[in-house]
Design a protein around this nucleic acid. Structure first.
Lengths: 227, 227
DNA sequence: ATACTTGTTGTCGATTTGTTCTCTTATTTC
DNA sequence: GAAATAAGAGAACAAATCGACAACAAGTAT
């Protein structure tokens, strides 16, 4: 899963994080790996993020977070090492995700109105109540736009989606149109075409040939925070 | 995840909070970090809040709360350390289990339409994401009726309420009318009267004298499950 | 041969940090 | 309740630190 360099960097980042609580900067990482420039680090970080080992806030300094470690039993037991009262240096990792919640990734924003872009990388994590999650793979998205207001889905809401490539008539789904735009709409199959209906009279229902639409998942939950 | 300064400030705030139970003021933080001005503190606080380490009440003095600490196992065990009859003033931190959730009671159903009855006893428990919960006591209710649909609150939704006896104009609140009926409505004070507005043209706004209404809490979150 | 990983150099713009000041809002005090 | 004081919010400026990225070269495994 990881190359040596990627692994080495991940271990270093984790080390620093658990030791000091402060993310290393690109320069510090560069020195730690004995490189002459930060560019290599940049690529390694991108790769680690892509593979889901770390998360970072874009355009923020020292904003790295390790979200999982490679299964490898990194023999990190420092020889005389002992860890005072700390079971793990990364509680988020071993906790089988709290009794009644399931930790799922937030994969970005999705247009309820005019589609913006396909689903991106993980941008955050989110704990959803277990009873909202059935079996299968789930993820969350943040709603942008108001095309689904009549279904009680407002701008800024977070929706929980169960990954699935099929849908029943009437389901609200995340659909990928022409492998390009992802949008949240009500799914309806009409004869040999597929209609994506908004839940807002100001938006029109769009009808496509079945080959232009790929269902990414179906809506299973919604959360909103006021204030 | 944090820069040195952010980390240093977070540690300081946590220190003060666990030592004295009182948030440090911006000036005290400024002195603690050896700065000449509070502005820097302001930005650091903003960054910490953005990263989810602290929470604060806007426009309130000394209203900080640490909601998580960096993974670092800061060896903060005061040498002869002992904790005076306080397990911790920050339950969120020692609770080893529940990741980012807070367990709150569900106190029954509430009418969004015609009020049914006052809030009953606990009927269930519910795990809400921590970021939905601010400070204070919270509880959940299940919505019955459709008087708030235009606010995106539908029949069957679960709402999270922060217990409070006051509300700002425009807040959605749980109001007890004549000590009898509990209802979820938008709160608006008009002169010496209180208006409870539905978010559905089919329902009328009801206006009461201030002595007939008791605010029970304000709406802070909403969850819905499809399927 | 081809694709991928790794190293390096160097540029450019963004973020972080420290300061000074001004304003608005809370909290106290009289 | 009014005035005085304490806090917090935030704009503006400068300097240092940082991260994003393009381009080119070299090593490696398929």
């Amino acid at each position: 899963m990881l190359t040596k360099k990627q692994h080495a960097l991940l271990v270093f980042i984790n080390q620093r994080l658990t030791d000091t609580g402060v993310s290393p900067s690109f320069d510090e990482m560069k020195d730690a790996l004995g490189l002459a420039s930060k560019s290599g680090i940049h690529r390694l970080i991108t790769a680690l993020e892509e593979r889901g080992f770390i998360r970072r806030l874009p355009h923020r300094a020292r904003a790295l977070e390790v979200i999982k470690l490679p299964e490898a039993n990194v023999p990190k037991q420092p020889i005389g090492g002992f860890k005072p009262n700390v079971v793990s240096n990364n509680p988020d990792l071993d906790r089988p995700a709290a009794a009644n919640t399931v930790d799922i990734p937030v994969l970005g924003r999705i247009a309820a109105g005019t589609p913006i872009e396909a689903i991106q990388h993980e941008t955050d994590r989110f704990s959803a109540p277990a009873d909202m999650i059935g079996r299968g793979e789930h993820f969350a998205l943040t709603i942008q736009g108001d095309s689904m207001v009549d279904a009680g889905i407002h701008d800024g809401d977070t929706v929980v989606i169960r990954r699935s490539s099929t849908a029943q008539n009437g389901d609200i789904v995340v659909a990928l149109v022409d492998d390009q735009e992802a949008t949240l709409k009500r799914f309806r199959r009409k004869g040999s075409t597929i209609a994506l209906e908004a839940a807002n009279p100001e938006y029109e229902t769009r009808i496509f040939g079945p080959d232009r639409i790929k269902v990414q998942g179906t809506l299973v939950g919604l959360m909103r925070t006021y204030q």
